[in-house]
């Protein structure tokens, strides 16, 4: 046995690149980078007692009812009048009707202090907004039929959210002189308090009866 030093042969690493490329392609194909996106909502907690359902009384003028029927038509009803939308295009304001979004904004803002639109109440939101009149008790009640299609329902939901987003954007421009998305968390909170999303999703019910 000779004890002379033997050199460790150099490993041929030229195929390393190939192997790692193979792995890389595998992960590229398998990975799904897409994050889920959607319209966030908060459901009301379940009724404590099934037999005794407490209904919250809402003043007529504070209520905007949005009904979506089984043939995917939308009706928007408030104290100032009723509007029918036959299709999704009309919801967006194509055709010669005011879009649902504008209806909602008019309803939430009530700039003219119309007695048929929600009550304006002075509230303090802290600097720099200060005390401004807002319709803090307004409710948008979204109701649907059992056979309404999900597509239309989401389209209507989307328009409602869009109305609020535009209001918040306008508020951000007015009070902070900046876009809503560039505000700090605290400022966003303030704006959200100024225009809280008050959308109630009632369970489908028989709304033709009564009155």
């Amino acid at each position: 046995m000779s004890k002379k030093k033997r050199k460790v042969p150099a490993l041929n690493a030229s195929s390393m690149a190939d192997i790692s490329f193979l792995l890389l392609t595998f992960f590229l194909l398998v990975s799904s980078m897409d994050t889920d996106s959607g319209l966030a909502r908060r459901l009301p907690p379940p009724p404590q007692d099934d037999t005794h359902m407490e209904t919250v009384k809402v003043q007529e003028r504070n209520l905007l009812v949005v009904l979506v029927n089984s043939s995917d038509e939308t009706m928007v009803k408030s104290q100032i009048g009723t509007e029918w939308y036959q299709s999704d295009a009309e919801l967006l304001g194509r055709g010669n009707k005011a879009s649902l979004k504008d209806k909602v904004k008019e309803f939430v803002l009530n700039t003219s202090n119309n007695p048929l639109l929600p009550e304006l109440m002075e509230e303090d939101f802290g600097a720099p907004i200060g005390t401004v009149p807002v319709t803090s008790d307004h409710v948008i009640s979204l109701q649907n039929d059992a056979t309404t299609s999900y597509k239309t329902y989401i389209a209507v939901q989307n328009e409602l959210v869009r109305a609020y987003n535009e209001l918040r954007q306008e508020g951000a421009r007015k009070y902070f002189n900046s876009d809503y998305e560039n505000l700090t968390e605290d400022q966003k909170e303030q704006i959200n308090k100024l225009y809280p999303q008050r959308i109630s999703e009632a369970e489908p019910k028989n709304f033709m009866g009564g009155k």
Binding site: A40, R42, L43, N144, A146, T148, E201
Partner: peptide, 21 residues
């Protein structure tokens, strides 16, 4: 159809899973 969605929503309320998307 919305009836399925409503059923799911009611079930979620009962399960106290109130944050939905």
């Amino acid at each position: 159809r919305m009836r399925y969605i409503s059923d799911v929503k009611q079930a979620l309320r009962k399960a106290y899973a109130l944050k939905i998307s």
